[in-house]
Design a protein around this nucleic acid. Structure first.
Length: 412
RNA sequence: GCGGGCGUAGCUCAGUUGGUUAGAGCGCCAGGUUGUGGCCCUGGAGGCCGCCGGUUCAAGUCCGGUCGCUCGCCCCA
């Protein structure tokens, strides 16, 4: 039955899983709204060029992880591997850059062709926020604070550490990159195979290597900090002071670098040690060159993306589902009355579970499995006197109520 | 893309040195109880033992391959 299985790296979400998933998204949406971020939904596919230009043609995401295809009109399209480029593109397309800053929240599926692992899927979900058009370091601080609030509200803050670094402005970053490569070239024979490959492509990644030999070499490497020009230093200082002001604790991590090319200045990650190898739950930074790269006016930006699956895994707890009221008709005469009662209660905003068939005992069992809060039974006696029997399924207590009082009783 | 572990019922797992009709618990369905759930008792449904090939009188069990899951590397959310 090869066709009845999901594609590798994809998952069906239902039951408890999707309840947790939704809880993460709703928590993110609510917290972002408190900071004035409005939701945006961009298409799940874009012209391939949007990602090629922004992610850097040497990043792994672009070189081997994109789902790229040609549509019937011959256009090269790509399923979005992340949403920042799409949001920036949308801001340009819709002329939104006239009025800055823009604050956006998004949630949705992303696609990367990777080897699946815990917390790493081929179709996965992210929430994220983007602050476009704010060059001030206070923008970085706000974005980080909003992320921290979400983690707080999800109850995972104590398992998560904020790591912080700066990549400096493009000039500083470029200068450092050259200096680093010059140093590493001298140790070619001591670097791991992986790192040799990174040397030409993304040398700063080597700082982050887990290989023992690489780490020894890296210990003596020039430090990014020393390549920062004054403007970059001042910017980072202001970000740190802003975080201190809000009491947001962080750990400076000079090895924290970014896989995607558009990042400048602040880079940050909220990481956990509870998810195995995939420890980053929120990651982001400043991307001052991005909008211009896609053909817009030079416009700064800062934002982050969070992995919904990872946060759901970390938050772990059971998400309550809606507890309906179950209606149990007894005898053929009550069937129609039950349907009408169900319609009336639902119209009043009360969730109702009404089975299509079954003896009273079976329907009670079904009510129990639907996690119903109350069971309403009505048979010939109740019909005759215009009442229903209300049973509290948690306590087992029963009372008889006039039908006319039901909505008030259940809504309260 | 590279390495390790694992594939038996919807789920969690037994299955002896290869040996008859492949088991348990949970879950599901029905009955015990024709106006009442949870607990209990009884019965039932549900398996290409991941797939293909090989060894053998005989394979869930051994061997090879393959696919999938999983953990790590890589990458990243």
């Amino acid at each position: 039955m090869a066709t009845a299985r999901p594609v590798r790296g994809t998952h069906d979400l239902f039951g408890e899983t999707i309840r947790r998933h939704r809880h993460v998204i709703e928590t993110g949406r609510a917290a972002s709204a408190l900071y004035g971020y409005e939701e945006i939904a961009t298409p799940v596919f874009e012209f391939t060029d949007v990602f090629l230009r922004t992610l850097g043609d040497t990043s792994d995401v672009v070189t081997k992880e994109m789902y790229t295809f040609e549509d019937r009109g011959g256009e090269s399209l790509t399923l979005r591997p992340e949403n920042t480029a799409g949001v920036a593109r949308a801001a340009i397309s819709n002329g939104l850059l006239q009025s800055l800053p823009l604050k956006f929240f998004y949630a949705g599926p992303m696609f990367r062709y990777e080897r699946p692992q815990k917390g790493r899927m081929r179709q996965f979900h992210q929430i994220g926020i983007e602050l476009i058009g704010a060059p001030e370091p206070q923008g970085d601080v706000e974005v980080i604070a909003a992320g921290a609030m979400i983690l707080e509200r999800l109850g995972v803050a104590e398992h998560v550490t904020l790591e912080l670094n700066t990549l400096g402005d493009p000039a500083s970053r470029q200068a450092y990159r050259e200096e680093l490569v010059r140093y590493l070239e001298g140790y070619r024979d001591r670097l791991s195979e992986d790192s040799l490959a990174r040397l030409g492509r993304n040398p700063m990644r080597i700082l982050d290597s887990k290989d023992e030999g690489d780490r020894k070499v890296v210990e003596g490497a020039p430090r990014l900090e020393e390549s920062l020009n004054e403007a970059s230093r001042d910017f980072f200082k202001a970000v740190r002071e802003g975080l201190d002001e809000l009491g947001l604790a962080y750990r400076l991590n000079p090895r924290l670098v970014r896989g995607l090319d558009y990042y400048t200045h602040t880079a940050f990650e909220f990481t956990t040690d509870q998810l195995g190898a995939q420890g980053a739950v929120i990651a982001g930074g400043r991307y001052d060159g991005l909008v211009e790269e896609i053909g817009g006016p030079s416009t700064p930006g800062v934002g982050w993306a969070a992995g919904v699956e990872r946060l759901a895994l970390l938050a772990g707890r059971e998400e309550a589902r809606v507890r309906p009221v179950a209606i149990v008709p007894i005898g053929p005469a009550a069937e129609q009355a039950a349907r009408l009662l169900a319609a009336e209660l639902r119209a009043a905003g009360i969730a109702v579970e009404l089975a299509f068939k079954g003896k009273p005992g079976q329907r009670m069992k079904r009510a129990d499995r639907a996690a119903a809060r109350f069971a309403l039974s009505l048979g010939d006696d109740e019909l005759a006197s215009g009442v229903v029997k209300l049973r509290d399924l948690d306590s087992g207590e029963e009372q008889v109520l006039p039908r006319t009082e039901l909505v008030r009783r259940l809504a309260g």
